[in-house]
């Protein structure tokens, strides 16, 4: 199968999946037993006729299929509507939160993916060495500890104990009148950044290290590495080839993880008082703020689907045998 056909097929599948995800979100939320206005009626703050007016204002009085079509149409033009509880566009709520989350998690994930994978490959190549054992024990320890526990310990030691870094106070990036760049490229930001960044890197390092180590261990006895060695390649060059042949699981995992980043890590955000998407979503759910929840969940689903697609395409680029196979 040619690469082009492969690409078209995969993209089509991704598009269909997105539509399914969106419909599921829509249906699920409509099936919830209450809506945000029923509470107001019960508390006596609004009369039924006022509620009717409000529902009409938000278009909730239209037939369900009209609502669905409008919803789809708006989603694909990235118009998420107004928040029911905060009286401002959903994008204004989600945008900054998402940005904050990505600024924190994406660099952390990329860093750990590169460093831990290289360390894992080295560990796998030197099987039985102290480095291998030490790296596995350390990273597994941090992987097994919940991220908020690591976070709390970091805070206890470096904020409250040594007083090096602030424990909270990260603001929304939009709150700075001088703009985004001024927020993110300041020393103050760096101080807020270092602890949650470290916690994230430590948390994810175990996965990449073990994946990389295991695939290099698998490759190590292989015939083609023997031939590479017989050709006179040095240890590091051989490790390079072993690493190149171990990329597949690492890339898959990286892509999947990146997709999941869009959900934020609620516990981490709470511990470090980081205004991210995870917190925004939980708040919106508690307030029964449909439009915000819908938009947040849509973005998460889209991210996972898009990253899966990216992983598939990366496969075909990384492993020439994938294209040949029936995919």
């Amino acid at each position: 199968m040619s690469f082009r056909r492969f690409l078209i097929k995969r993209t089509a599948i991704a598009a269909i999946l997105t539509l399914v995800a969106v419909s599921v979100i829509f249906a699920t939320l409509r099936m919830l037993p209450s809506d945000p206005f029923s509470g107001l009626v019960a508390s006596g703050a609004l009369t039924p006729s006022q509620v009717e007016e409000l529902r009409a204002l938000y278009g909730l009085d239209e037939p369900i299929w009209v609502q669905y079509l409008k919803y789809i149409q708006n989603l694909f033009t990235f118009q998420f509507g107004l928040s029911l509880t905060q009286q401002r566009p959903v994008s204004e709520i989600i945008g900054p939160a998402l940005l904050n989350t990505m600024v924190l998690l994406l660099p952390a994930l990329i860093t750990t993916a590169i460093v831990s994978s290289l360390a894992g490959m080295y560990a796998g190549w030197n099987r039985g060495s102290w480095f291998e054992q030490f790296s596995i024990i350390t990273t597994t320890f941090f992987r097994a500890t919940p991220i908020f526990v690591t976070g709390i310990f970091l805070l206890i030691i470096f904020s409250y104990g040594l007083g090096w870094f602030p424990a909270f106070g990260m603001r929304s990036p939009m709150a700075n009148p001088e703009g985004l760049a001024a927020t993110y490229f300041s020393l103050d930001f760096l101080k807020h950044y270092i602890l949650p960044f470290t916690a994230t890197v430590l948390f994810y390092s175990g996965d990449f290290l073990m994946l990389a180590r295991n695939s290099v261990v698998e490759r190590k006895g292989s015939e083609f590495l023997k031939l590479h060695r017989a050709k006179g390649l040095s240890e590091m060059e051989q490790l390079g080839r072993a690493g190149r042949n171990s990329m597949l699981p690492l890339v898959t995992y990286f892509a999947l993880r990146t997709g999941m980043l869009f959900q934020g890590v609620i516990t981490l955000e709470v511990v470090f008082a980081w205004p991210g998407i995870g917190r925004a979503l939980v708040q919106a759910i508690l307030n029964q703020d449909y439009p915000t929840v819908q938009a947040a969940v849509f973005i998460m689903a889209l991210a996972v689907i898009v990253m899966n697609l990216t992983a598939d395409i990366a496969y075909a680029r990384l492993d020439p045998t994938v294209e040949a196979g029936d995919v």
Binding site: E223, G232, N245
Partner: peptide, 25 residues
């Protein structure tokens, strides 16, 4: 020293050609 001798002076034809070649090169 081995790395210099291998292939330059002594080369090798492996047993299992099916998996002796690097699949991603």
């Amino acid at each position: 020293e081995w790395q210099d001798i291998r292939w330059e002076e002594i080369s090798y034809i492996p047993q299992s050609a099916m998996d002796s070649l690097d699949p991603v090169m």
